[in-house]
């Protein structure tokens, strides 16, 4: 019988998409180069509710001052504020050890299920805004969508959260989208990237 340890490293719904592209999920990605990376197994939490802000503050987590913006903690975690009372914490360096049932809600601060409900893709390289312009109607040029900005919109007709942030020295887009549509979206973005690969 398979032991439970095997499932500590949960599977991304996307893992088959990059079987032919082994570089996609390596830890040493170069964010200055064109690439689409699957961070779906990386740890993330979501909280929503009237007390969410207080709970995070009590945990010494600084949150953005306005909705649809993000900030980065000293340890490199991303804190996304998606509404006045909804926050997502993304850990680019940590794999998900916690499951949705383990991130328990507290009174008036309800855990969300973004670890499993959403895939986490990271689009890197110099043409990320142009690539997204083939998939999304929102103007994501840096001049109007600077670092720290978040857009909750439709990408290739799938709901998505797009977060503009730095990864090392480079600006990247984190795209959080319906996990069940993740392989579809992966293909759609790869297709949009194609003309920039040559």
């Amino acid at each position: 019988m398979t032991t439970s340890e095997k499932f500590n490293d949960k599977r991304s719904l996307l893992y088959r998409c990059y079987q032919q592209q082994p570089a996609a999920l390596t830890a040493e990605i170069d964010p200055s180069q064109l690439g689409l990376h699957d961070f779906s197994v990386k740890l993330r939490y979501g909280f929503r509710g009237p007390q969410a802000h207080a709970v995070l503050s009590a945990a010494q987590i600084t949150v953005p001052s306005a909705a649809n913006s993000l900030c980065t903690t000293p340890s490199g975690e991303l804190v996304l504020r998606l509404s006045n009372s909804e926050y997502w914490l993304l850990h680019p360096k940590a794999s998900g050890q916690q499951t949705l049932l383990e991130s328990q809600s507290t009174e008036q601060c309800y855990s969300l299920f973004c670890q499993d409900s959403h895939a986490w893709l990271v689009l890197t390289g110099p043409n990320i805004a142009r690539i997204m312009a083939k998939l999304c109607a929102v103007d994501l040029r840096e001049i109007v969508f600077p670092h720290g900005a978040i857009a909750q919109t439709s990408v290739a007709r799938v709901n998505a959260v797009i977060a503009h942030h730095c990864f090392g020295e480079s600006a990247v887009f984190s795209i959080l989208s319906d996990s069940a549509s993740a392989s579809y979206l992966w293909d759609a973005i790869q297709d949009a990237m194609q003309e920039f690969k040559d």
Partner: peptide, 30 residues
């Protein structure tokens, strides 16, 4: 179930002894 956190519902849409087992999507294939 084998370390996978699960929600189990004893419901009978098909009319047999049955368990609906809901688990995090990342564990579904497992």
């Amino acid at each position: 179930i084998e370390g996978i956190p699960a929600r189990l519902l004893r419901v009978g849409f098909v009319g047999e002894l049955g368990y609906e087992i809901h688990v995090p999507a990342s564990c579904g294939e497992a």
